[in-house]
Structure formats: structure tokens, C-alpha cells
């Protein structure tokens, strides 16, 4: 089939997407909430990658972060608390042709959904995961989360929280089949974009922990990090982040880190101050579960009929002398 050049150009124009094509409703997050920065980066990524809105699905659980799909103009699945991963896995397994993103929070992923999180890493299905980690339950009004710093005073821990914070990076890096781990912070939007983009381009379970501010319930948590760029450690590498000269001038605290080195990645991941930002680990060789399971095969009614008849043959008792000659026992 041939198409005149003008029509081709028209079609190109039609198919090309602008930022508005991904912008859903007006976000209802608090002003200054880190979620806004993540949304802006993701919408930019969709435009830059020219993702087809109808073939893109954002899956979330419950929490402030999980409102994310409502603000995208793609397909979205705002499910139940903690279960974003298995829903996303089911979608990807049924339809490997769809681009799947997961937006989850520190309560959603690291607390109620922690079991699914561990196994999602093992499955290594091709999806981009953003852990919106603000260290606190926001939607239910200030309770301690697994990533809250010890001593954090919240409505459920009025005398200060009792336990050391869970480190989502070291947990993820400890699971067999991990294939992509990165960390970003909401206050360096250029790097946030670069990291989400790298995650999107990695084929597998790309886990990005995004440290984000909650101006409502933890307003001063990251003040000193914002005030002092030295407290942010940028991980750079030819296979990782490459910084613009402007960024390099501001964030002088840099470390060359090869994302293929998992031992080093685990070491860096355990540091909390300065906060490491960049791609900690990437292994494109880990097989994706949907590939291992041959997801998305074409099935025709004839294909199913033949398979079913063969199965029925196994269990059939034939009348005397009526058994078909060609029967696979």
C-alpha cells in the first residue's frame, strides 16, 4: 500500500503527541508535593518517547502517589492498597504489547504490598516502577511509614517512631533477578527525568526510588539537603548518568559508579547522607517472566479446538470398535 507524501506527513502529525496529550485532570496534590515533579517528568517522557496513549497503562495502589494515573491521559488502573504489582503483572502477561508503568508509595510498596514487591523483582517483568517515597502516610494524615526516620513523631507514634527506617534500595538489590535500581530526588528535576527515562529504556523491572518532599507532614525533612548540594551524591558513568555542565557546577559531589557492579551498588545504596542519586544497578541480561512464559501468543479457535480434542482424547472411553484409528494416547 502506498500513501501520498502529504498524507504521510498528515498522519505523522496526527500520530505525534504533545504534552497535552498526556495531561489528565488537574492534580489535587498539595503545592510543593514531590508528586508534581514526578508527574511533570513522566509526561515529558511520554511526549519525548511519543508513547501511544492508548497503549500505555499506569497502574497504582492506594495513597497520595497512587492518584497519579488520574492525572495522565492514558489508560490507568487505580486499584487497591498494596496490590499494584500483581495487577500490573497480570496486565503485562495478558498484553505484553502494552507499556506499563507502576506508581506506588512507601506505604503501598514497602508495607502492605511488601510481599508483592519482593516477588515483582523476581518476576522481572518489563515495567517502569516509581516508588514515591515521602517517608510518611499522607492520604490518611500522618502516620509513620516503613521508611520514616527513627524518632519521627506522627499520629501513631506521638513519642517518636520506634524502628530504624527500611531502605528500599538495599532490599531491592538483595533480591535474586534484580535488573534495574536507581534513586532520584524530586528537587533535581533534570536528573529525575534522566533516571526515569533510563528506567523506561531498560527492559525488565526498572525500580526507581524517588525521595520526595511532603510539605504537609514532613516539611523540614530534606531542608538541609536542599540547602547544601554537597549532601547529594551524584553517581555518574558512561553507562549511567551523564551530567550537563550546569548540573556539574552545582552538584560537585560526584562519584563514578559502574551500574554493572552489584557489590558496589549495594554499598552505595546503604548510604543515607549524602543521598546517592543515579543508576545503582543495571543488568539487561536478566530474563523477563513474560518472555519465559511466552506471553501474548496468538490463539485461534482452531488452535484451542485441536488442543482441547487432544486432551479429551486422553480421557475418552470409546464404544467398542468405535475408537478412531488416529488417536494420540
Amino acid at each position: 500500500m502506498t500513501m501520498p507524501v502529504t498524507q504521510c506527513l498528515l498522519k505523522l502529525h496526527e500520530d505525534h503527541h504533545n504534552l497535552e496529550d498526556y495531561q489528565g485532570g488537574v492534580p489535587r496534590w498539595c503545592s510543593g508535593c514531590g508528586d508534581n515533579a514526578i508527574l511533570a517528568a513522566v509526561q515529558r517522557l511520554c511526549r519525548d518517547e511519543d508513547l501511544s496513549p492508548e497503549r500505555t497503562v499506569f497502574v497504582s495502589g492506594i495513597g497520595c502517589s497512587s492518584r497519579f494515573p488520574h492525572y495522565m491521559k492514558t489508560y490507568g488502573f487505580h486499584g487497591i492498597h498494596g496490590r499494584a504489582f500483581p495487577v500490573a503483572e497480570g496486565i503485562k502477561m495478558a498484553r505484553p504489547d502494552l507499556t506499563v508503568f507502576v506508581n506506588t508509595g512507601d506505604g503501598d510498596c514497602c508495607s502492605i504490598g511488601a510481599g508483592h514487591w519482593i516477588h515483582a523483582i523476581r518476576y522481572n517483568m518489563n515495567m517502569t516502577v516509581m516508588l514515591h517515597d515521602n517517608h510518611v502516610y499522607g492520604l490518611t494524615k500522618k502516620q509513620a511509614s516503613p521508611t520514616s526516620p527513627i524518632g519521627f513523631k506522627s499520629n501513631t507514634t506521638p513519642r517518636g517512631s520506634y524502628l530504624n527506617a527500611l531502605n528500599p534500595l538495599t532490599v531491592t538489590l538483595g533480591v535474586q533477578n534484580v535488573s534495574f535500581v536507581a534513586q532520584a530526588v524530586d528537587w533535581v528535576p533534570e536528573v529525575l527525568y534522566d533516571i526515569i527515562s533510563a528506567a523506561y529504556h531498560h527492559r525488565g523491572f526498572s525500580f526507581v526510588r524517588i525521595i520526595q518532599r511532603c510539605p504537609e507532614f514532613l516539611p523540614k525533612m530534606f531542608e538541609s539537603w536542599l540547602a547544601d548540594p554537597q549532601k547529594t551524591l551524584l553517581l555518574t558513568h558512561a553507562n549511567g548518568l551523564t551530567l550537563t555542565p550546569e548540573l556539574s557546577r552545582t552538584y560537585k559531589n560526584q562519584l563514578a559508579h559502574d551500574p554493572s557492579n552489584i557489590d558496589r551498588a549495594r554499598e552505595i545504596a546503604s548510604g543515607e547522607d549524602p543521598i546517592p542519586v543515579g543508576i545503582l544497578y543495571r543488568n539487561p541480561e536478566v530474563p523477563c517472566y513474560e518472555d519465559v512464559r511466552h506471553a501474548g501468543q496468538m490463539r485461534t479457535p482452531e488452535h484451542i479446538r485441536v488442543g482441547l480434542e487432544a486432551e479429551l482424547d486422553r480421557f475418552t472411553v470409546w464404544p467398542k470398535n468405535a475408537e478412531p484409528a488416529q488417536r494420540a494416547v
Binding site: F85, M93, R95
Partner: peptide, 13 residues
């Protein structure tokens, strides 16, 4: 729970 959610995801798709 995951088994059910996985099935729901597949059905949704």
C-alpha cells in the same frame, strides 16, 4: 491475593 489481582489485571487488559 496476588493470584486474584493478577487475574484481575489480565482481565482488565
Amino acid at each position: 491475593i496476588a493470584a486474584c489481582a493478577f487475574a484481575v489485571g489480565a482481565s482488565y487488559a
